[in-house]
Nucleic acid binder design. Structure first.
Ligand code: MG
Length: 420
DNA sequence: TCTGGGGTCCTAGGACCC
DNA sequence: TCTGGGGTCCTAGGACCC
């Protein structure tokens, strides 16, 4: 895929006013996979969830030409592009490359705000004296990222975060777009409202019904009209951004506000015992992450998605914050037991919210790795050995000592037998 | 075509307090 | 006695992003 090039909006020179950089990796997951499969370069490659229920998480530009994009069901993508090569994703690997790229950014300035695994804001106002104009810095970062990882990225440079983010999107792939401060409104106003960061399908439709199609239309709409149609916060925000106002600065440290895990099943499930076991497994994953972060949760939230894709959430605030799988699982299970199961369950999830610093974190291994910590729920779950094996593999059974009857099982001679 | 998993932020109603 | 208003916490749902 050829580079989109490095350009300055409006055709002038870099006047040094575009000190906010937004840098976004190009087709990140797919590009990382291509590093290990060079023979696939130039072909339509899709990274998709394993199994029949996946969605596209990344696609090469060759695949995008067929209309394939992120969040599209893999089945749909294959219909649009039957020759696409679907690869499973490897998050551990992506995190590794992400860390490498972020380190390149931090060599330029300590003022780096990672927004996600593959993008960040850089405030280069202070780096200019040493490193040159924003466009010089942007070009240098792109070159260094490529030299160190073999990956391409795109840079948006502007006077605000919002415009920088919009500019990087228009710089893709493998390019850079600098928007001098004086060009901000000329850049923004022709854009369709739906292209704005924070405006999705729902808001775009509401705005279109008001006759607002471009950012320019938005800027010309009275604040009160906007607020009354899309809500207080959205209205205020859209009005400011459409007029180029955005005083947000780079935030280098963020406190996590919630930690959760969820699971979509290969086939919708109706057996509450299996679902409760899944809750325990998810709760354990959540608890392990809480303890690693030195955090405890005051609130436990349950999410259930049914066959028809309708989704409910239930949450409960505990009397004491917790970082223990058993406590989280007990709460999640209790919430779950009060949910009517008129339909089969497609997805189940557990999230820890209202996080506080844990006062004393005792060392507590994952339930799945320490059989002495195996909870009573194991027995209550009443799962058959075969079902667990099918779901988690034999290793889990060994670790949880379900394969060879241990003390826990001997206390329960009526443990359901595997189907013949 | 049939919809992942990780998150953040906002709204709105009710409880409760001042 | 009635009315008003603000603030905080809790809960459910939804929009949105990558
Ligand atoms: Mg991105």
């Amino acid at each position: 895929m050829p580079s989109a090039g490095e350009r300055i909006f409006g055709g002038g020179a870099d006047d040094g006013t575009s000190t906010m950089l937004h840098i976004d990796m190009d087709a990140f997951f797919a590009s990382v996979e291509l590093l290990e499969h060079p023979e696939l370069r130039g072909l339509p490659v899709i990274i998709g969830g394993a199994g029949g229920r996946g969605v596209v998480t990344s696609a090469t530009y060759e695949a995008r030409r067929f209309g394939v994009h992120s969040a599209m069901p893999t089945a749909r993508a294959l219909q649009l592009c039957p020759k696409a090569i679907v690869l499973p994703s490897h998050h551990e690997k992506y995190r590794h490359y992400s860390a490498q790229v972020m380190n390149v950014f931090r060599d330029v300035t300590p003022l780096v705000e990672p927004l996600s695994i593959d993008e960040a804001f850089l405030d280069v106002a202070g780096a200019r004296r040493l490193l040159g104009s924003p466009s010089t810095i942007g070009a240098a970062v792109r070159a260094r990222v490529f030299a160190e990882t073999g990956l391409t990225c795109s840079v948006g440079a502007a006077s605000t975060k919002f415009i920088a983010k919009m500019a990087s999107g228009r710089a893709k792939p493998d390019g850079m777009l600098v928007v001098p401060a004086s060009e901000s409104l000329a850049f923004l106003h022709p854009l369709p409202v739906g292209a704005l960061w924070g405006v999705g399908a729902s808001t775009a439709e509401a705005l279109t019904r008001l006759g607002i199609r471009t950012v320019g239309d938005l800027a010309a709409t009275p604040l009160q009209t906007l607020v009354s149609r899309v809500g207080e916060a959205s209205g205020q925000k859209l009005h400011s951004l459409a007029n180029g106002h955005d005083r947000r600065s780079v935030v280098t440290e963020r406190v996590e506000k919630s930690i959760g895990h969820e699971m979509t099943f290969e086939f919708d499930m109706s057996d509450p015992r299996q679902l409760r076991l899944e809750l325990l497994r998810l709760s354990d994953q959540v608890a392990v992450r809480l303890r690693r972060a030195g955090l405890a949760a005051k609130t436990v939230a349950l999410k259930v998605r049914f066959s028809d894709f309708s989704t409910i959430s239930r949450s409960r605030t505990l009397s004491e914050p917790t970082d223990l799988a058993q406590t989280i699982s007990d709460a999640a299970r209790d919430l779950f037991d009060h949910v009517g199961l008129e339909q089969r369950v497609r997805l189940i999830g557990v999230r820890a919210e209202n996080l506080v610093e844990a006062h004393e974190t005792v060392h507590q291994p994952s339930l799945w790795e320490d059989e002495s910590a195996a909870p009573s729920s194991w027995r209550d779950a009443e799962v058959t050995v075969d079902r667990v094996a099918e779901k988690f593999g034999r290793n889990i059974l060994k670790r949880a000592s379900l394969v060879e009857p241990g003390p826990r099982e001997r206390r329960r001679p009526d443990h359901p037998a595997p189907p013949a």
